[in-house]
């Protein structure tokens, strides 16, 4: 059941495609001897520019393609007699051809090409500039493109790297089940704490009231809480078990155990929230930057017409 990652898709098909594009662009750039010097307005410059623009359009289409889902009529046609539908014969492939059994389009393939072709723009667009930079809309759009690609690379990295960590951290649990466990720990602990000093009751109550999982964007990303009351409670409890009778000491150890379990559970929940935030947050840069880049790119292309 090991699946190929989006980088390995179809034996690195899009790696090869974009590798070829980049190699061809570099070769052409080396062989080309434009006068007076290489820039966007030479023949090769135009070719590279148009190719890059087309790739950009294709890359932007991913956002739309991802959201285009086919529709099935809401109500299945009423089959009066099962038999009526039975005498049509199979249209789908035989069961043993599991790989690519439905053929055609997969979003994974689309994303794979999105990553590789996006990466190839670094070479194509840079060669298109002929290394002529300045303070103008042209360089601005180049710069924005660069940011979009970098955020994309970062996204690819988290997509490939984080899923395993999420699974390792959660094991059989879901965030929901961990939160339920934490709630249980709170209930046990508060009940247990009643027989001890006010200080202990206060520690446990604070841990229940003030422990935060998630929170705002940055809190989610940090995966921590400053002076987390649960950690604090566990630390302080360590020094509070002195002078109890055997029975009470046993109860105290129970309470300590519950709070320690809670601390672990809280840490796991925070980690999960952190990972999910990291899987998400880069898109908040990538997508708006793409739009900004698109606007700059349109300005860049429109500006060219004034040179004519």
């Amino acid at each position: 059941m090991k699946r190929v990652s989006l980088l390995e898709f179809k034996h690195y098909r899009y790696f090869k495609v974009s590798g070829f594009l980049m190699a061809a662009a570099i070769a052409a750039y080396i062989l080309d001897r434009p006068e007076p010097e290489p820039f966007g307005g030479t023949v090769l410059g135009y070719i590279l520019g148009i190719a890059s623009a087309l790739i950009v359009v294709f890359l932007l289409l991913y956002g739309i393609r991802k959201r285009l889902t086919p529709r099935i009529p809401v109500l299945n046609k009423n089959v009066e007699h099962e038999s009526a539908s039975q005498r049509t014969t199979s249209t789908r492939a035989a069961p043993h051809q599991n790989e690519g059994r439905y053929g055609g389009f997969t979003l994974q393939g689309w994303l794979s090409s999105h990553v590789y072709l996006g990466g190839s723009l670094i070479v194509l667009a840079t060669l298109h500039t002929g290394f002529q930079f300045g303070v103008n809309v042209h360089t601005l759009s180049y710069f924005l493109m660069f940011l979009v690609i970098c955020s994309g690379f970062y996204g690819t990295y988290v997509y490939l790297y984080l899923p395993r960590l999420v699974t390792e951290n959660m094991g059989e649990d879901t965030l929901e089940s961990i939160l339920l466990k934490i709630k249980d720990f709170d209930r046990f602990a508060e009940k247990r704490a009643l027989q001890f000093s006010d200080e202990i009751i206060e520690l446990v109550a604070l841990s229940r009231q003030k422990t935060r999982i998630g929170g705002n964007f940055f809190q989610q990303l940090s995966g921590r809480q400053k002076n987390c009351p649960t950690t604090l409670a566990v630390q302080k409890l360590q020094g509070l078990g002195k002078g109890y009778s055997d029975d009470k000491l046993k109860s105290f150890h129970d309470l300590y155990g519950i709070m320690a379990h809670k601390e672990t559970a809280v840490a796991r929940a925070r980690k999960d929230v952190k990972y999910k935030a990291r899987l998400d947050f880069w898109l908040y840069f990538h997508a708006p930057l793409s739009i900004a880049f698109l606007v700059a790119l349109v300005a860049h292309i429109a500006a060219i017409f004034f040179y004519w």
């Binding site: 059941m1 699946r3 979003l107 994974q108």
Partner: peptide, 10 residues
């Protein structure tokens, strides 16, 4: 399966 961006579903 088809619209899984990373091809994880099978």
């Amino acid at each position: 399966v088809r619209l899984c961006p990373t091809g994880a579903a099978l």
